[in-house]
């Protein structure tokens, strides 16, 4: 680990003042950043500890919830309001990492965690994230965990978060404190696809600090589910995960939310599939068609072609089980 200065921020403004300087990084729970620093992939010269800031979960005037960026993953998943009104989010968080890591990791840090691509982690490999222009050894290497949607020749890495997949499905808004003041960014617009610049992973400007995530009220929570498919039954990153929510009117889809994890450089909101279903009768053919609409641009690599079929199966199964399930009465 490269030497650095450590400072604890007193408030968001103070944090941004310190964080805007080149070489500074915000420290939340540290579960990803400390690991990357130990690998010398991240070499900040200053850590601004923001884990003590924005620690609450509050009601919003429109009946949603605002979750502070410093709240731990465990605290979000255990919050009764989240469990009742956004069970999809609680499930997604609980499917991720381990209890220990969820106790440390913060909401802000989870959003900004970096890929687990083995070639990104190995300094001996070529990686355009670590050294732009270097090339990508994952394209023709071990890429079982890599992207099938939205990838580029420069980068086929995936975003590893589960929480973000649920947030994408729930239309979450991210509050960002920046050098130019606060602003709101939709979660689904926060992460970038890799293109030619995979080292630039979000739309956030240098020094910007995530302070909160806001969940609007929705009608899908009573019929929603997060299903994560992985290579062991727990404590593993997703091969494919699906956050799905349905609101029905009789046999017709009133609203549907669908987001995928483990398939792209960002949490993947399946807008094409949603559009294919909204207002339609929910039949098997409609479900297959919706999955096809989303996955027709998908491209497999050496080791991950199966993920296209797997994603289709889990999308179809998740939505059809939600349709069959009786609405959970609370």
């Amino acid at each position: 680990m490269t030497p650095f200065d450590y400072q604890r921020a007193a408030d968001a403004a103070g944090a941004v003042a310190a964080g805007v300087r080149g070489g500074a990084k915000y420290l939340g729970g540290g579960t990803n950043l400390v690991d990357l620093m130990r690998e010398t992939i991240e070499r900040p010269d200053c850590l601004v500890d923001v884990s003590c800031l924005s620690g609450g979960i509050d009601e919003t005037p429109d009946g949603g919830l605002q979750i502070g960026a410093g709240v731990t993953n465990a605290a979000v998943a255990a919050d009764r309001r989240v469990r009742e009104r956004y069970p999809l989010l609680a499930q997604a968080i609980l499917s991720g990492a381990s209890a220990q890591i969820r106790n440390m990791a913060t909401v802000g840090g989870n959003i900004l965690q970096r890929t687990r691509c083995g070639y990104f982690y190995d300094d001996a490999a070529r990686c355009n994230k670590r050294r732009p222009g270097d090339g990508c050894d994952a394209v023709d290497g071990f890429n079982r965990n890599h992207a099938i949607l939205g990838a580029s020749p420069a980068c086929v890495a995936t975003h590893p978060s589960d929480m973000c997949v649920a947030l994408a499905a729930l239309d979450a808004m991210v509050t960002v404190e920046g050098p130019a003041g606060p602003r709101q960014v939709p979660l689904i617009g926060l992460h970038r696809l890799p293109g030619d610049t995979p080292q630039i992973e979000t739309v956030l400007e240098p020094g910007a600090l995530i302070t909160a995530v806001t969940l609007p009220p929705n009608g899908i929570s009573a019929r929603s589910r997060y299903r994560k498919v992985r290579d062991r039954s727990s404590y593993a990153f997703a091969l494919v995960s699906v956050a799905a929510g349905l609101e029905m009117e009789g046999d017709t889809v009133k609203d549907v939310r669908l987001a995928l994890g483990g398939v792209a450089h960002k949490p993947w909101r399946a807008l094409a599939a949603e559009a294919a279903l909204r207002g339609r009768l929910l039949t098997d053919a409609a479900l297959q068609g919706a999955a096809e609409a989303e996955l027709s641009p998908a491209r497999g690599l050496r080791d991950n072609v199966f993920k296209i079929d797997l994603a289709r199966r889990v999308i179809v199964d998740s939505l059809s089980s939600l349709a069959q399930a009786r609405e959970i009465v609370r």
Partner: peptide, 9 residues
């Protein structure tokens, strides 16, 4: 609460 002390500074 339980944490991984290896990842904690």
């Amino acid at each position: 609460r339980r944490i991984n002390s290896c990842l904690a500074l």
